[in-house]
Structures are given as structure tokens and as C-alpha cells.
């Protein structure tokens, strides 16, 4: 049956792909934790994501690591990141770091830059707001 083959192959592929996507959706709905939430976590090996703004003056770059503080809703957490940060990484920008919480510091191996929905030709007009504060 011609129509049968025409349909079944794409159907199997599409349903398979949708299945994979659905599995990922559950974790995608809460993409990151706030500094306040991370602080209440027990130290451990479980991987999580932390989002916040890089505090001005806190960035210390070394050979393979970057140490800095991220802050959100007046709560700050220290981060030690191993690896090269993304191009747009700078003081004041939002970041999402992936890794583990050791009770004192967030140990990260993956960093993503998170920017808000503003676009300004002049840097002075910026007022970054990641909208994360009101949620928690």
C-alpha cells in the first residue's frame, strides 16, 4: 500500500521526535533557580542551573577559571566557573550557570549569557531587568 508507507514512516519519525521533546519539556519549564533557592538547597552532586546578574567588581579571572558573584533580589551567591565564558560575559549582565552547589559556592562548568528584552543604541539607556525577582 503506497499511501500507507508514505504516512507510517513520517508518522513514526514525528511521534518519536515529539516524544523526545516532551521528555525535555518537563525540565524546560523551570529552566533555572534563583540565588535564594540555591542557598536553601543541600550541598550535593545534583546538577542545577542558577541565574542572576553578575555583580560589578566581583569578577576575578584566572587561567582556566572565573570567580564572580551573581545576585538577584538582593541575594548573592559566589560562583566558580571553569571554562571560557561566552563573548557577551561582562559585569552587570545576566548569566545562567550550570553545575553543583557545594554549600558555599556554586561550582559551574557551563555558562550561558541571559539578556533581557531591551534594545538600546546607547548603553546609558539600559536598565537590565530579568524579571526573575517577582516570581520567588
Amino acid at each position: 500500500m503506497k499511501w500507507y508507507a508514505k504516512f507510517v514512516i513520517p508518522a513514526v519519525v514525528i511521534i518519536g521526535v515529539l516524544g523526545v521533546l516532551m521528555v525535555n519539556l518537563s525540565s524546560a519549564l523551570v529552566y533555572y533557580n534563583t540565588p535564594a533557592e540555591v542557598q536553601t538547597r543541600e550541598a550535593g552532586e545534583s546538577r542545577l542551573r542558577l541565574a542572576g546578574q553578575v555583580v560589578a567588581g566581583s569578577v576575578i579571572e584566572e587561567d582556566t577559571t572565573v570567580v564572580f558573584t551573581v545576585q538577584d533580589c538582593d541575594i548573592a551567591v559566589s560562583v566558580i566557573h571553569t571554562g571560557t565564558p561566552p563573548q557577551l560575559f561582562s559585569e552587570g549582565i545576566g548569566v545562567v550557570v550550570e553545575g553543583t552547589w557545594n554549600g558555599e559556592m556554586f561550582v559551574s562548568d557551563t555558562m550561558l549569557v541571559m539578556h533581557d528584552e531591551q534594545y538600546r543604541a546607547d548603553a546609558g539607556d539600559y536598565d537590565q531587568d530579568l524579571h526573575t525577582c517577582s516570581e520567588s
Binding site: 513520517p10 508518522a11 514525528i14 521526535v17 515529539l18 521533546l21 516532551m22 525535555n24 519539556l25 525540565s27 524546560a28 519549564l29 529552566y31 565564558p85 561566552p86 563573548q87 557577551l88 555558562m111 550561558l112 549569557v113 541571559m114 539578556h115
Partner: peptide
């Protein structure tokens, strides 16, 4: 070049991918 990754499983990206495949369906 902005976030630093090609793809991540964030809600917007995941749902857009689902929408793409549903309409392909």
C-alpha cells in the same frame, strides 16, 4: 554568539520545536 550555545532545552525553544513537528505532522 549571544547566549553561548546553539541550543538549550528552555521552554520557548522546546515548545517551538514541538510546534514545528506537529505542523510537519
Amino acid at each position: 554568539p549571544t547566549w553561548g550555545v546553539w541550543w538549550t532545552w528552555d521552554a520557548r525553544l522546546t515548545l517551538t520545536a514541538i510546534m514545528f513537528f506537529v505542523y510537519l505532522g
